[in-house]
Computed example of a mutant assay.
Amino acid sequence: MAEVFDIDEACTYLKLAKPTLYKYVRVGAIPAFKMGRVWRFHKQVLENWVKQRVETDTTARTKRSRLAKSH
């Protein structure tokens, strides 16, 4: 079975402040689901989310760097 975090565990895992994580959840920027009144996070889904963020950010920085060098 997949490991599931509550909000405090997810904050610790991602090294985010609780208000920041709640903001990401509220705007749909981070994958989460509710069980009753409590937000839950699948560890593997969070790992995939982080990997995607790294790839996206790295690609964006590479493109900006190439544009800066061409001008």
Rank of each mutant, 00 (worst) to 15 (best):
M1G: 06
M1I: 00
A2C: 03
A2Y: 04
V4C: 03
F5Q: 03
I7D: 01
D8E: 14
E9W: 01
A10Y: 09
C11G: 14
T12H: 08
T12E: 14
Y13C: 08
Y13H: 13
L14D: 03
K15V: 13
A17R: 12
A17P: 00
Y22D: 04
Y22G: 00
K23Y: 14
Y24F: 13
Y24W: 13
V25H: 01
V27C: 09
V27K: 10
G28I: 06
A29W: 04
A29D: 12
I30Q: 01
I30A: 10
I30P: 02
A32L: 05
F33M: 06
F33Q: 06
M35D: 11
G36A: 07
G36R: 07
R37H: 08
W39T: 02
W39I: 00
H42M: 03
K43S: 01
V45Q: 11
N48D: 15
W49E: 07
W49P: 06
W49S: 06
W49M: 04
W49L: 07
W49C: 05
V50P: 02
K51S: 14
R53T: 06
T56F: 11
T56Q: 14
D57H: 13
T58N: 08
T58C: 07
T59D: 08
A60D: 10
A60K: 13
A60F: 06
A60L: 12
R61H: 12
R61E: 11
T62K: 14
K63E: 14
R64T: 07
R64D: 08
S65M: 10
L67Q: 09
A68L: 13
K69F: 05
S70F: 01
S70Y: 02
S70K: 09
S70C: 02
